[in-house]
Amino acid sequence: MLAKRIIPCLDIKDGVTVKGINFTGLKDVGDPVELASRYASDGADELVCLDISATLEGRKTFAAIVERIAEVVDIPFTVGGGIASVEDAGRLLLAGADKVSVNSAAVRRPELIDEIASRYGSQFIVAAIDARQYGGKWVVTTHSGTRPTDRELFSWAREVVDRGAGEILFTSMDNDGTGKGYPCKTFAALSEMLSVPVIASGGAGSVEDIAEVLTAGQADAALAASIFHYGRIGIGELKSALSSRGIPIRTAIS
């Protein structure tokens, strides 16, 4: 049976891993290569590394880090942050990324998804969608949730899949970094609507939250950062807790 995936996310700024509450007030939580390798050996099913550097120098550092992570890590890893062209995606592929995630640039220019998918295949492209609720409606946002767009979550999700995205990574900006849990009804509706896997992100505070989004929320994978970085819960501990709830999880067989 296909296992539900647990995916730690590393937000990398100018060469260090950071994670803050609602993307502001960032704190340095460690060397990304070391962290990636530790997560992989702890049983992470996949890794996501997001470049949140604002400078050219920071982006160069990031590419070098991607190469080093690809060398040490033997599980799939997705790279995102600032990918705005097929060339950007290609460079990261060459650096060793297994998938790229695109976000704001696809909102600005949706054809980017078609271009990357037709060049490298749908399995190579994850569409990341940040959204928050305005008056009961899920509105797609950019710039770390600060800028609402004129797009609605469900129609945008359907569009990116039609354009060739192989997975959807949905973050509720209302929940991200708060530890309040995921909006499970929204996830379930999204997962039922889409033919591709849905990764739940933004809000995990406990094992219960993650268990809920993988069952009631019908998510195929859960992505989290803070709960792992600050050692609130270990990946092994989380996975055995999920497994004991009857959720299909990859565990070591001996």
Partner: peptide, 14 residues
Amino acid sequence: YKTRLKIPEMGWNS
């Protein structure tokens, strides 16, 4: 329809 398979199969299987 509700429990149909997601394609591609992406992830860990035994």
